[in-house]
Nucleic acid binder design. Structure first.
Lengths: 151, 151
DNA sequence: CTCCATATTATTGCGCACAATTATATCGTG
DNA sequence: CACGATATAATTGTGCGCAATAATATGGAG
C-alpha cells in the first residue's frame, strides 16, 4: 500500500490557505494605506481606537492580540505620525494611556473609502465573504474563551 | 442622523479576523515545530518540497507567495539546519536549485503528528473547518488567476 | 514603613515580510 | 562576437511578531 501522506498535503490543511490569504489581503491594503502613512497593523490599531475609544496599551494588546514587544515601538511610530498620544495614567503610572489626537480622529473620516476599495479586490461573492468572516470570527471567539478557561 | 461608520467596525470587516486568526494559528504551530528546529514559514516550505519535489527558489517563491528578499535568507537557514541543500542549476546558473537532503526527507515521517495536534487546537467542528478551508482556497485561486490575467 | 510579589511597559535578539536596489547569468539582435 | 535587455537571486533598510529579559510602579503582608 503506497504511503500518500495525505495529512501533509497543502490542500488538506487549514494552515497554508490561512497563511497565504492573510498575506494577500495585507498586501492589498498596502497601497491604499500608503497615502495615510499607515501600515496594516497600525490601521487595525486605529480601527480599534475609533470603535472602542482611548485605552491603555495593555487593553489594546488584548484586542489586537499583540504583546508589548510589538506594540510599544508601533505606538511610538503612530505617535510620531501624529495620530495618537502616549502618556502615563495619573492613577497608575505603570499604564500607558493611548489617546487619539485631533488628527487621529479626523483620519476616520478620510479613510472610510479604504474598506470599500479592498472589498472590491477580494474576488468572492458577498455571501461567501459573510460566511468566511463568520467562520473566522467563530474561531477567534472560541480561542479567546479557551485562553480564559486556562486562567 | 448619527454617523455610525459601520464600514470601519472590526466585526464588519474581513481584514481583522483574517489577520488575527492567521496569527493565532501560527502561534499554535510554534511549540510543536520547536523540536524540529523549524519556524512556521520554514515548515510550509518543507510541505511544498515534500509534495512537489525539488525546485528552484523562484518556483518555490511562487507557490508560497514570497519574494527572494524573504526566501533567500530563509533557505540559508534551512540549509544550515540540514534539511535542504542549495546549489546552482547546471543548465542555468542564475537559478538556485533547492533539494531535500536525506534528513529533510526523513523529517516528513517524523513530523506527521503535527497537523493532527494542531487540528485538535482549532475549536471548530470538522464541517466548518472544511468549509473555511474551501473558502480560503477559493480566494487564493481567484487571486492567483487575477494576477495572471494582468500579465 | 519595609520588603517582596505582581502588574505593566520597554528593550533586545531573532526571524519573517516586502520594496528597492544591486549583482550576475542568460538571451536575443545586430 | 558584442552589447543591451531580461531573468534570477542576493542584499539592504524598515517594520511586524514574539520570547526572554529588564525596568519601573503598585499593592499587600508583616
Amino acid at each position: 500500500m503506497p504511503e500518500t501522506y495525505e495529512e501533509l498535503k497543502l490542500e488538506n490543511q487549514l494552515c497554508f490557505p490561512l497563511y497565504a490569504c492573510a498575506k494577500e489581503v495585507v498586501r492589498q491594503y498596502r497601497k491604499p494605506l500608503e497615502e495615510f502613512n499607515l501600515t496594516y497593523t497600525q490601521y487595525i490599531v486605529m480601527l480599534i481606537l475609533w470603535e472602542y475609544g482611548d485605552m491603555s496599551e495593555g487593553q489594546l494588546g488584548e484586542k489586537i492580540h499583540l504583546e508589548s514587544g510589538t506594540l510599544a515601538p508601533l505606538l511610538k511610530r503612530l505617535e510620531k505620525s501624529g495620530y495618537i498620544s502616549r502618556s502615563r495614567e495619573k492613577n497608575n503610572e505603570r499604564r500607558l494611556a493611548i489617546s487619539l489626537t485631533k488628527e487621529g480622529l479626523a483620519l476616520k473620516e478620510k479613510i472610510r473609502q479604504v474598506p470599500e476599495k479592498i472589498h472590491g479586490c477580494i474576488p468572492l461573492p458577498d455571501e461567501d465573504l459573510i460566511l468566511l468572516r463568520a467562520l473566522l470570527n467563530k474561531v477567534l471567539d472560541k480561542m479567546n474563551n479557551k485562553e480564559k478557561e486556562i486562567d
